[in-house]
Amino acid sequence: MSQHTPFRPVDKTARTLARDLIEGASSGALATLRPDLELPSVSRVALATDGSGMPVTLISALADHTAALGANPNCALLIGEPGDTGDPLSHPRLTLHVTAMFVSRDSAEHTTLRSRYLALRPKAKLYVDFTDFRFVRFAVSEAVLNGGFGKAWRLAPADLWPDQRTT
């Protein structure tokens, strides 16, 4: 008996839409697992990309999701906002299954991310240098793209960044 899958074969349309959603995301919903209660939790985080197009955020050590990521770096990001009109489910959105990697404040990577992040998110200048804030890179293991009703794809990192080695 054959299994029906809701996913279409990955094509140029899916790759382009997914990359556009990542590049254009100013925020996303970050899903983590709370270590104290082992319950899922979702937070809105600001997003940007690093020089290779991978998603990054800047988060405070005071946030619940920071503790959750420290205990379990496996998480998910949902990006893509509904438009001003129409059914919210008709607008594209992308779920990224990711591993969070904290960037040391005294590393060259931090300096590079800081410059790029501020170029993309200039309002972060207000808090980027607070000692409790750190950059987090998200290594993508899989992506699920919903392009609207009846348009779903499961993408691998190579579909998103074909010319780069991803972790």
Rank of each mutant, 00 (worst) to 15 (best):
C75R: 12
L37M: 13
T167K: 14
S41Q: 06
F102K: 06
G148I: 00
R134T: 14
R15Q: 08
A152D: 05
M54Y: 09
S2Y: 13
N74C: 13
G53K: 03
G51W: 11
S104T: 13
G24I: 14
N74G: 08
R15V: 02
P82D: 01
T111R: 10
L145T: 07
M101P: 14
L118R: 05
S27C: 11
F135P: 01
G80D: 00
L30K: 00
T66N: 07
L89E: 13
K151D: 09
R15P: 05
D132S: 09
L17A: 07
T99K: 15
G83I: 00
L126V: 06
V45Y: 12
P88A: 09
G150H: 01
P92F: 03
V10P: 12
P92Y: 04
L69Q: 06
G70P: 10
A68M: 01
R19T: 13
T85A: 15
N72K: 10
T85V: 14
A61C: 09
K123P: 11
G70A: 11
L118D: 08
A108M: 15
P55L: 03
G24L: 11
A67E: 13
T16D: 04
A124D: 07
A61S: 14
N74Y: 12
A14L: 11
A71F: 09
L145K: 12
V103F: 02
T95A: 13
L17D: 02
V140A: 06
F138V: 04
A119H: 12
E109C: 05
S2C: 14
A67L: 11
T166W: 05
A71W: 11
L145W: 06
F133Y: 05
D129M: 15
A48R: 07
E23F: 14
P6Y: 14
R34M: 01
R165A: 15
P9F: 05
P40Y: 06
T5E: 13
R114M: 09
H91E: 04
R34S: 07
R121N: 10
G86L: 02
R34N: 01
H91Y: 07
T16M: 06
A156N: 12
V103R: 03
N146D: 10
F149N: 00
G148R: 00
A29K: 15
A152N: 01
S104F: 04
L78D: 04
I59C: 08
A119G: 08
A25V: 04
G86R: 13
P82Y: 05
G83Y: 00
D20L: 10
G51T: 10
P122D: 03
P55A: 03
C75Q: 04
L69E: 05
E38F: 08
A31H: 11
V98I: 03
V98S: 01
F7M: 12
T166V: 06
D36P: 01
N72I: 07
G150R: 00
R105T: 11
G83H: 00
S27P: 10
L118W: 09
